[in-house]
Design a protein around this nucleic acid. Structure first.
Lengths: 121, 121
DNA sequence: AATCGTTATATATTTATGGGTATAACGAAA
DNA sequence: TTTCGTTATACCCATAAATATATAACGATT
């Protein structure tokens, strides 16, 4: 009698999980972290404040922003220094498109994961 | 006029990629690395030789094996010490089931990634 | 000119990860 | 009892990654 996957795994809460991202030439470009950061920049108008809300160092947040702007054809974050409020940042229309696409992508991925996980239980 | 994803990304070779694994209570349990290791243990009859073929330290390989055996309901690797050849290891029927399932899972995942990537080009 | 909070950048420090090395235990066979 | 290659485990070190700290530049407003 052939052993089943369920016998191998037992009754633990096993499930299929994973991560998705968009890459270019093998270099990771766009994942959940950047998406959240972009949304918070949009809400706060500042990389600095967005980083704090994500409990990220400003440096790390800036690196993410810089990477996004370097790899994309069009800048995703528009930054400005100086001025009354010291400067600030906004996100571009292209960024909104990417966020929207990524959201729907994640929904499809979640459905995939749920379907696969069901096979284990 | 709304900007498209293609405009945001430009003509670079962007694609959707990702990683999959099986987890239990949030702890990663089974991924591509363990699968390859199990297959090599099956071929060589030894954790030590399997580690060398994967260019992995024996220590790391043993940790993977130990983790697999600890988390699964049934042992996936059966080890023995001493004897004519110093000992050795074999994989269980449950391990073969998991390898087989994981292979088909990855095929379905790859199809998902290809389908999503096509939307970017 | 002084002020403000931000962007932008360099440098140092701490933390995590993996690898290297060493060693004991094992048990069948000679 | 000696030999063998393996499993099993502890300990230290090197490299990488995340984090912390410090500082300059910016420019509209006052």
């Amino acid at each position: 009698m052939a052993k089943t996957i369920k016998q191998a795994l037992g009754e633990g809460a096993f499930r299929v999980n994973g991560k998705l991202w968009i890459e270019s030439n093998g270099k990771r470009f766009f994942g959940p972290g950047p998406v959240e950061l972009l949304e918070l920049i949009d809400q706060t108008g500042s990389i600095n404040q967005a980083a704090k809300k994500m409990k990220l160092s400003y440096k790390k947040a800036w690196e993410i922003v810089n990477n996004l702007n370097t790899m994309a054809a069009q800048p995703l974050v528009i930054t400005s220094t100086g001025g009354e409020k010291g400067g600030g940042s906004t996100i571009s229309e292209e960024a909104r498109q990417l966020i929207s696409y990524h959201r729907s992508l994640r929904e499809r991925f979640q459905a995939f994961l749920d379907k696969e996980s069901a096979k284990l239980g």
